[in-house]
Design a protein around this nucleic acid. Structure first.
Length: 596
RNA sequence: GGGGCUGUAGUAGAGUUGGUUACAACAACGGCCUGUCACGCCGUAGGUCGCGGGUUCAAGUCCCGUCAGCCCCGCCA
């Protein structure tokens, strides 16, 4: 059957926008049939567009032609309808719908297109397995939840652009086909046909180009830009993702952080109508690790880590005292009211800690009769008193202990803290607690590669007072870096950059990148720094992670229109796919066989 | 590279100790119905139990392998 033609019909309203204010108006709406209710005589159709749903009423007595057409309508047919907005008869108002006070009395109906029966209902109620949703992503995107997320993402991007514009930033595009560089994540490579045997890399970030823009005098740059990292996926990680990237000249750390707080506050106001308190708290890396065990602490709840290494150093409990003697850490958490945890729950917590390298976990239930714990017997009265005091232990509390190297004790107990915060409902989704984390180490020792690697990236400037350490004790040098952490998630990170060619060369040297390699890989940057590079610094925010928190979802796929699966494939387009041998030949690329 | 969870009509699920023809719901299709709104009523159709192998008289169910989706560790300057 032929579809109706749109002709010169013009939409006057979006479905979801019709309210009592339009009563009496002749309107024209277009959208998808969400559901048809056929009463034999009267037919109701819920028509949906991105703003919502409105009820069309088709009365055979008013217009038999459109009523007849309405009998053919099935789910997801594309309709255009003209009619009068009317108040619903008494007793038939639907308070659950935004448009529930009105309906459109249809005088003319067009079936613009038909639809196969969709593989799943496109309403807000039906739950569908994610692989099915991803295969039919264009249908899933038609549903209210994803429509809402994508509309919000647009609003956030618009707000970011307006804010940066108002602060004198300009958006400049940087290359997507660029140069592979050592350090950092695995690159996505693109073979060059014109230069057989050579490859471009897709950018992990526009880092070098934005620094060059500072050398070029643009002063304040930003870009909302795709970045690519060929690493394994997580619930909050996709191989291609979007950064809000920016860079400023003639600024120090505090000035960068101030401007960025303003941007984040604007975004929260526009997207959620939430007023943030500025300035945001600032924690040093050392303090974050000491108090929370991780460099991305969730500040929605307390339950801080407590260092009890001193208190147990002399105890009979060898697991603790030996760690204390070997420069490790013994730390504890006081889970208020946690004495009700079952043995199974405690075992589960232990298993959780083991994921992060912990060898075990000691626990204590604080009861009226004292410590109920497998390890209670190892401690003297004095030691118990000291520990109870240090941990502010009260009857009903659960104390969890971790003894290990400082790295493992901190991470395992810190993760356990985050896990317990979720489990105990201490981390409400609509509570937004920010903190900056600063003074990261500049370098860390990579035992496998037997060299220092940059904690942030190789262009990060050391704290001015720590520059002497570069020659004496590089591991001790701290960086002029800063991460913005929201509810335990790192949503942004940046630094003041090195603008001095000599310092940059020294940095490469420390990273074990020889002068020749540095010249080959980064020569263009080193050259640029020699031509009057201004002091500069910047930051990049992960737009997808920010959107996850704004949208209140646990999956990055819910804020990306066309996301990849965990194996980095696209179930919709079937990418990546094999290509014709002819294409490979043109590129000068030959596939290795499995045996090789 | 490693650990874990899941896979049964189009969809989301039930299926007990291995035992008759694999269930009911929603969706679909046909019919009835003039105030429903996740409409209602009657009827019809719809299955490679992810795939492959094994054990068994007998496998959706037990075992092995494999594929896919998800979560995590490693990885992610």
């Amino acid at each position: 059957m032929l579809n109706d033609k749109l002709g010169n019909w013009t939409r006057t309203h979006r479905c979801g926008d019709l309210t009592a204010a339009q009563i009496g108006e002749e309107v024209c709406v277009m959208g998808w049939a969400q559901r048809r209710r056929d009463h034999g005589g009267l037919i109701f159709i819920d028509l949906r567009d991105r703003e919502g749903v409105v009820q069309l009423a088709l009365d055979p007595d008013r217009d038999p032609t459109s009523h007849q057409k309405a009998e053919q309508v099935r789910n997801e047919f594309v309709l255009a309808a003209r009619g009068k907005v009317s108040p619903r008869p008494e007793g038939t108002v639907n308070p659950k719908m935004k448009t529930g006070e009105v309906e459109i009395e249809i005088s003319e109906l067009l079936i613009l297109n038909r639809s196969e029966t969709p593989p799943f209902m496109l309403d807000e109620f039906t739950e569908v397995a994610e692989n099915i949703r991803l295969k039919y992503r264009y249908l899933d995107l038609r549903r209210p939840a994803l429509q809402k997320n994508m509309l919000m993402r647009h609003l956030v991007a618009k707000t970011v652009r307006n804010y940066f514009d108002s602060q004198g930033f300009i958006e400049v595009e940087t290359p997507v086909l660029t140069k592979s560089t050592p350090e950092g994540a695995r690159d996505y490579l693109v073979p060059s046909r014109v230069n057989t045997g050579s490859f471009y890399a897709l950018p992990q970030s526009p880092q070098l180009f934005k620094q060059l823009l500072m050398v070029s005098g643009f002063d304040r740059y930003f870009q909302i830009v795709k970045c690519f990292r060929d690493e394994d996926l997580r619930a909050d990680r996709q191989p291609e993702f979007t950064q809000i990237d920016c860079e400023m000249s003639f600024v120090n750390r505090a000035q960068v952080m101030d401007i960025m707080e303003g941007m984040v506050a604007k975004v929260f106001k526009v997207a959620l109508d939430v007023d943030l308190t500025l300035p945001m708290p600032r924690l040093s890396y050392a303090e974050a690790l000491d108090r929370f065990g991780v460099d991305n602490p969730d500040l929605r709840f307390g339950m801080e880590l407590i260092d009890i290494t001193q208190q147990v150093a002399g105890s009979q409990f060898k697991v603790f005292s030996s760690v204390a003697a070997s420069d490790g850490l013994v730390k504890a958490l006081n889970v208020k009211g946690g004495a009700t945890f079952s043995r199974k729950e405690l075992d589960d917590l232990t298993d959780f800690a083991k994921i992060y390298g912990a060898k075990g976990m000691a626990w204590v239930k604080v009861t009226e009769a004292g410590w109920q714990s497998p390890i209670a017997k190892f401690f003297t009265e004095d030691e118990l008193t000291a520990l109870n005091e240090k941990l502010a232990a009260e009857v009903g509390d659960l104390l969890l202990f971790m003894a290990d190297t400082s790295a493992i004790a901190n991470e395992a107990l810190g993760r356990l803290r985050g896990h317990l915060g979720q489990k105990l409902g201490l981390a409400s989704k609509d509570n937004y607690q920010f903190t900056w984390v600063t003074d990261f180490p500049l370098l860390e020792w990579d035992a496998e590669q037997r060299r220092h690697v940059a904690v942030h990236h190789p262009f990060t400037a050391p704290l001015e007072e720590d520059i002497p350490y570069l020659d004496t004790d590089p591991g001790k040098a701290r960086a002029q870096a800063y991460d913005l952490v929201l509810n335990g998630s790192e949503i942004g990170g940046g630094s003041i950059r090195i603008h001095d060619q000599a310092v940059q060369s020294r940095m490469f040297e420390l990273l074990g990148i020889g002068a020749e390699e540095a010249r080959e890989k980064f020569g263009f940057l080193l050259d640029a720094l020699d031509f009057g590079a201004p002091p500069h610094g910047g930051i990049a925010f992960g737009l997808d992670r920010l959107m996850m928190i704004l949208a209140g979802t646990d999956s990055i796929r819910d804020v990306i229109a066309f996301p990849k699966t965990q194996k980095a494939t696209c179930l919709l387009s079937d990418a990546p796919n094999e290509v014709d041998d002819k294409q490979l030949q043109e590129l000068g690329v030959r596939l290795r066989t499995k045996q090789q």
